[in-house]
Design a binder for these strands. Structure first.
Lengths: 259, 259
DNA sequence: AACTTATGTTCGTAATACGAACTTAAAGCA
DNA sequence: TGCTTTAAGTTCGTATTACGAACATAAGTT
């Protein structure tokens, strides 16, 4: 067994697949519709090459075209949904998160790491609207600035954690944001020690959240769960003294339920 | 401008991309983890070919491997998320659907057609648990047996509707399920005429739902919205006389808000 | 209508994807 | 534990496929 990844140019590396997926990923929130030339520019590909991939993706039903514009179809959700539906614990986690929402009136989610982001995989939304609207399943946020991201980063082996710290781009989203690598390292080590993370208005003003890791009964890291709330309404003492213990209890319940 | 789709073997059709995506889509809820041989068997590909695509997807971060087992990573959610996030109206629709949930205590969703399925794109879940648990964004259900699916099918031009009726596989999910093509055509024409669909325990016992189409202010079909409920708790008269008008009002509000 | 820009098409060919066959590793069984 | 079977890794020759340059056509702009 050899877990090393192929590199472009390696014998078994299929360049055409990589290029085609690059074209597919060129579409995003900022570029929902594009012409052939825009795709070619955005991917840095020769136009004829980009055209072949667009037309193939069109033939496969993943993009549609209107005149010169191409855009994604709902079929691409199939490519992502398989990951969600393959999680055998999703339903049970959903129940526990909804229990949190019912009890505390706050949104609660499970996320996993993907690159330098966290991806929301399970979500229970509160009736309160702040920061609840756009955070659907599939949402990606920078791991460094989210409580769940910090919990997950803190779980990384040191070489991976150091690699993350070396490459991560730090942004001052708010005046509270950590933008110093040493400060972030210290914070992550503290999170590792404490077993939880609280992020207070570092990603967005008013957004306060607490997260803990969730393990299955077999010891496998399932992700991190959080409670997110409004800093105007909920003070830090409540987060620490009421929400955190609740979250830790739920993480334990999930562990028991996934044995 | 020529909107016809390429076929396999056409000059500009990139077979390697198609094959690679086929490998990616071989993973689903029933096959979340697979060995190389299982993938090869499932896709009908030569083993060496399947191996190349698996290793390339691994190199790109879309699959991970543990020993001989391959499974998807959260990165594949990127491929689907772009569609969600490219919908400029998602946030406003989410608000309206949550208004329905707050007022009626029922789940409410927006879905679009993809092939013979509907895909849930926006969702507001009720606190009631029946059929709410597994219906996350990205969920696919057979269009023929869901209220939103029927509304969307009824919007299709006749040639497309007839093609659907000719190819769709009808299943008796419950004793109430329509399994006769003529009966389904009649139902869909009735839906077209009425401008809404009510599906009563045809997909699952206890599941009752009503749906209407939603158009943007510019006249573009955004999808269908529904209210789903429990047949034991909510009778047909309530669905028709209370939920439907509410839904129609929300569809109109969304149209106004998307001008 | 003329000009500019974007897209479609063709074609020669380098390279790339392919699969058959051999080798190695892992799993299963007694 | 040793042997057998099965699965996976690797090599290599080559058919085919993806590639891009150049030309042709279509669409957009003034």
């Amino acid at each position: 067994m050899d877990d090393r990844k192929l590199k472009p140019g390696d014998r078994d590396y299929v360049g055409a697949l990589a290029s085609g997926l690059e074209v597919l990923q060129a579409f995003d929130a900022e570029h929902p519709r594009m012409t052939l030339s825009e795709v070619a520019t955005r991917t840095g590909m020769d136009r004829a090459k980009a055209r072949r991939f667009l037309l193939t993706l069109h033939a496969l039903g993943f993009v549609k075209r209107s005149g010169r514009q191409f855009e994604l179809t709902p079929r691409v959700m199939r490519l992502g949904y398989a990951y969600q539906s393959s999680n055998q614990y999703r339903a049970v986690i959903q129940q526990y998160l909804e229990g949190i929402t019912a009890e505390l009136g706050e949104s609660s989610s499970l996320a996993v790491l993907d690159g330098d982001d966290v991806v929301y995989v399970v979500r229970s939304a509160a009736r309160h609207r702040l920061m609840a609207i756009s955070l659907a399943v599939g949402t990606r946020l920078p791991a460094a600035y989210t409580s769940m991201g910090r919990v997950l980063l803190a779980q990384l082996p040191d070489p991976e954690l150091e690699a993350f710290l070396a490459r991560v781009e730090l942004h001052r989203h708010t005046p509270a944001s950590i933008v110093d690598r040493e400060a972030l390292r210290a914070e992550l080590l503290s999170v590792r020690e404490a077993g939880y993370a609280i992020v207070d208005q570092e990603l967005d003003l008013g957004l306060r959240s607490v997260a803990v890791p969730v393990f299955s009964g077999a010891g496998e890291l399932l992700g991190a769960i959080n409670i997110s709330t409004n800093a105007v309404r909920v003070d830090m003492a409540t987060v620490r003294d009421s929400y955190l213990p609740r979250l830790q209890a739920v993480a334990e319940q999930i562990r028991q339920a996934t044995r």
